[in-house]
């Protein structure tokens, strides 16, 4: 048996200050709540902002069937947002609700990725955005079904089916428009070109994501990237399109530094609760 170091008086003093509780009690970990809040906020904001964007099409899409499918996706995303923001509000523990988070935060506190807040543009741009996002969200949610937080895992397990459909639908449109007419092809090329610079942000591994991965809350983004790149390549190939040249990544959404577009989206979305702060709807 190796000899043990002596217990020094200064070590005893430190030990005295440690919270009471047996060795088998779960450690009180405030950092965990903070990371969970940040993560759920990112997930919720991604879904909320894209849902809000897609809903802008309602009544104005190129055909009734398309209108239905866009509204359907928007509805799925608003549902996901509601779940994730509810989890975020609970993790924060400050008495805020999912609605408070959606309607009473300003730009700097929104943590969605920049891709989802991009304007709808034409239908090609909307579908380029949708495909690049849903292909990522699908792989992320696959991983989140094993999330150490049961609630996130449960939401992901339900939502991953919806998102698989979003990815499929958007991929079909990328192919159809890419391989349709000259005009649709040119528009899809422009749509992809607009969105391409926001892809790296989806895989950005900052402190929150590193910490969340260490806690078993999120899958390894680098491993998701492999499948994502392969899927995007395959769909573009089927569409007869070349991948846009890599562009300088634009980052910042996860830290609250957004494009100019988000402020306008929030101004519209939040106007009623902000104008009538005491009202219940």
């Amino acid at each position: 048996m190796p000899s043990l170091p002596p217990i020094r008086p200064e070590d005893e003093a430190v030990a005295e200050k440690i919270r009471p509780g047996g060795a088998f009690d779960a450690p009180v970990d405030e950092a965990h709540g903070r990371i969970l809040f940040e993560l759920a906020l990112r997930l919720g904001d991604d879904s909320l902002i894209l849902g809000q964007r897609l809903a802008e099409w309602c009544g104005h899409a190129p055909g009734v069937e398309v209108d239905l499918s866009l509204a359907n996706m928007a509805l799925d995303l608003i549902g996901q947002a509601t779940h994730f923001l509810t989890i975020a509000a609970e993790a924060e523990g400050k008495g805020r609700s999912a609605d408070d988070l959606a309607f009473r935060r300003d730009v700097l506190d929104f943590k969605n990725c920049l891709l989802v807040e991009q304007p709808n543009g034409d239908f090609a741009q909307t579908m380029a955005r949708q495909f690049l996002f849903s292909a990522w969200q699908k792989r992320l949610f696959d991983g989140l079904t094993a999330c150490a937080d049961d609630r996130i895992a449960a939401v992901a397990a339900k939502a991953v089916k919806e998102v698989a459909y979003h990815e499929e639908l958007a991929a079909e449109w990328v192919i159809r428009l890419g391989d349709g007419t000259e005009e649709s092809r040119a528009r899809m090329i422009d749509g992809l070109d607009w969105m391409w610079r926001f892809i790296p942000e989806l895989f950005e591994t900052d402190e929150v994501m590193t910490d969340a991965a260490a806690r078993g809350l999120v899958p390894d983004l680098a491993s998701i990237r492999i499948g994502y790149d392969a899927r995007v390549r395959a769909v573009l190939a089927e569409a007869g399109l070349e991948a846009p040249a890599d562009q300088r990544p634009i980052l910042g959404g996860r830290r609250g530094h957004h494009s100019e577009h988000l402020g306008h989206l929030l101004a519209v979305m939040q106007y009623l609760p902000r104008t009538y702060p005491d009202a219940v709807w």
């Binding site: 899409a61 190129p62 055909g63 398309v66 239908f123 192919i175 159809r176 428009l177 391989d179 349709g180 007419t181 005009e183 649709s184 528009r187």
Partner: peptide, 11 residues
Amino acid sequence: GAWVREAAAAY
């Protein structure tokens, strides 16, 4: 939306 419907038909 005409160009979208045309593209879908062409495809």
